[in-house]
C-alpha cells in the first residue's frame, strides 16, 4: 500500500525516533562499546522501520525497540563466532557480592537504616557498578530501574518468564546494593556498622 508510506514514515518519526537515546543506552549496556552500540542502534532502527507495520500500538514502542535491539545484538554475536562470548545464561556470580546480598540492609541498619547513603553516590559510580553485574542481572536491572519497563515488558524483551524477571531483578539489585555499599564505605559516606 504505497499510499500509506508517507503516513507510515511520519508515525515512525513521531513514535520510534524519539526513543533513540534509550535504545542507544540499552545498546551500550548490551555491547559495552560505543562503536558497537552505534551500529546496533542503526540496525535496530532500520529493522524497526521495515517492520513498522507489525508494530501494534498496544505495546510500548520503547519496549518493542529494545526487543529488536536485543535480537540484532544476539544475531551479531552469533555471527562473530566468538562463542566464548556467549555467556548469556551462564554468567558467573560474584561470590562476594552474593554473600552480601542479604546483608546490606542489615549492615547499615545501625548507622543508616534508611539507606540515605545511596543519595551520596555519584552517577558514574552507579554506572560502573551496574556494568559489573553479570549480564543476566544487568539487563533486567537496566530495563526495570533505568528504563522503567514493567515486569511483563521485560519478560518480552528478554524472552524469559515473568517469574524469572522477578528473581533476576531481586538478585541483581541485591548484588548492586553490595557494590554500592562497598563504595560508600570506601568513600566514607558510611562507616562499618556496629563493632560487635
Amino acid at each position: 500500500m504505497p499510499g500509506d508510506r508517507n503516513a507510515q514514515g511520519a508515525s515512525f518519526s513521531e513514535e520510534a525516533v524519539p526513543h533513540m537515546d534509550a535504545v542507544y543506552r540499552f545498546a551500550l549496556r548490551l555491547s559495552g562499546s560505543r562503536d558497537e552500540a552505534e551500529d546496533l542502534v542503526q540496525d535496530t532502527y532500520l529493522r524497526a522501520f521495515r517492520a513498522w507495520e507489525q508494530y501494534s500500538p498496544g505495546t510500548r514502542c520503547k519496549s518493542w525497540l529494545f526487543t529488536i535491539c536485543r535480537n540484532v545484538f544476539l544475531r551479531r554475536r552469533e555471527r562473530s563466532q566468538r562463542h566464548d562470548a556467549i555467556l548469556l545464561e551462564t554468567a558467573q556470580d560474584d561470590p562476594r557480592a552474593i554473600s552480601r546480598e542479604a546483608t546490606v540492609f542489615a549492615a547499615s541498619r545501625d548507622e543508616d537504616p534508611e539507606g540515605e547513603f545511596f543519595r551520596s553516590i555519584v552517577d558514574d559510580q552507579i554506572f560502573a557498578a551496574i556494568e559489573q553485574l553479570p549480564e543476566e542481572y544487568r539487563l533486567v536491572v537496566v530495563l526495570s530501574d533505568l528504563e522503567d519497563l514493567s515486569y511483563g515488558e521485560i519478560a518480552e524483551v528478554m524472552e524469559i518468564p515473568v517469574g524469572t524477571v522477578k528473581s533476576r531483578l531481586f538478585r541483581g539489585r541485591r548484588q548492586l546494593q553490595g557494590r554500592l555499599y562497598d563504595y560508600a564505605l570506601e568513600m566514607g559516606y558510611i562507616s562499618e556498622g556496629g563493632d560487635k
Binding site: V17, M20, D21, V23, Y24, R25, L28, E38, V41, Q42, Y45, F105, S108, P113, E114, G115, E116, F118, R119, I121, D123, I126, F127, I130, V141, D145, L146, E147, D148, R173, L176, Q177, L180
Partner: peptide, 27 residues
Amino acid sequence: QFEKHFLEALRRSQDGGRASESLRARV
C-alpha cells in the same frame, strides 16, 4: 525507605547516555 533510596539513586543515574548528533544523522 532503604529500597526507595536505592531505586531513586538508580533512576537518577539514568541520564548518562545520549545518542550523539552524528549517530542521529546516520540513522
